[in-house]
Design a protein around this nucleic acid. Sequence first.
DNA 1: GTTATTTTGCTGTCCAGGACAGGAAAGTTC
DNA 2: GAACTTTCCTGTCCTGGACAGCAAAATAAC
Lengths: 169, 169
Amino acid sequence: MNLAPEALPGGPVSHAIARLARIHQLLAGRLLRELGLHPSQELLLMRLWESGPQRQSDLAAELGTDSAGTTRIVQRLEAAGHVRRRPDPTDRRATLVESTPAGDALRDGVERIWAQLEELTVGDMSPSEQEAALASLLRLEENVLATEKGARCGLPAARRGAPPVVRRG
Amino acid sequence: MNLAPEALPGGPVSHAIARLARIHQLLAGRLLRELGLHPSQELLLMRLWESGPQRQSDLAAELGTDSAGTTRIVQRLEAAGHVRRRPDPTDRRATLVESTPAGDALRDGVERIWAQLEELTVGDMSPSEQEAALASLLRLEENVLATEKGARCGLPAARRGAPPVVRRG
DNA sequence: GTTATTTTGCTGTCCAGGACAGGAAAGTTC
DNA sequence: GAACTTTCCTGTCCTGGACAGCAAAATAAC
């Protein structure tokens, strides 16, 4: 735990991640709006396309939100006809969420958006540069994920005695 | 404009960015909550600490939000006493936003959070790995930023004839 | 078998924030 | 002086995060 190893000439990596995160999500969100999808809605749909019907609790875990938030995202997608719910035959508490044909119809558009984003992001980089960037990103993701999941080790368990200072604007 | 160069074995870089962005912002947001700051509030404060008093329009540009959103973020920070506004002597339309002593007092905590985040994110990486990751991140940020600013060239100018499909949950 | 506990999902509430429309005031251009 | 632009504000609508509370179903304990 070397808390201040040595300063990198380009600033902390976390700052670079944060800046890239913000700008990338901004851009992705704008592109996605063409399809009438909000980022969380698109993310949920992508999980369904990748892994088939999912229980809401699993979707919630993957989205990083609680069950309440997931419920509403699913409700909106359902109202739009992109998603359908059916009871889980093995557990009558649970509901399985699956993409409808109308939802599947969005897939081409979504993939086009991602291809566009990919071109804008790494279009001018050589294959080896792209691979290096990808390797770094995966490594960073792994680390953050380990913290997020395992957690409780180095983390001060945020949200304990944290007074909400800035409220009620 | 080679739109589909070759598939990388680890998936598109954009997907990796999106995943890292989401998980990193989630983690950063949780840590920040200890200080009672929301991500945008903290970002705005950091800009003030870095560059001194700023006009709201400049802050809006840096945050990527419009003037309305910036107004409210500033209002909340002002209500909490972290920020003060004073008229710009050179332009009576504009207001300069600056950090108050109470706002400055948050700086140590914020930097502690970032150091913690840095340790969790790159703590197990060698200096050369960190430098490589940073270089990749800066390169990606540069590309996305170029799209975001210059824009209008390859971008279909999102939000033109984009029907909001999923609403009114 | 009955009771307690946990899991799962829903609703309500509060808040932050993104986007849009509209408007007032100050500055700029003609 | 008139027209236009910039800067900021307000109001409105929507999404989403977080929390509390609740009902139904499943599981564990007795």
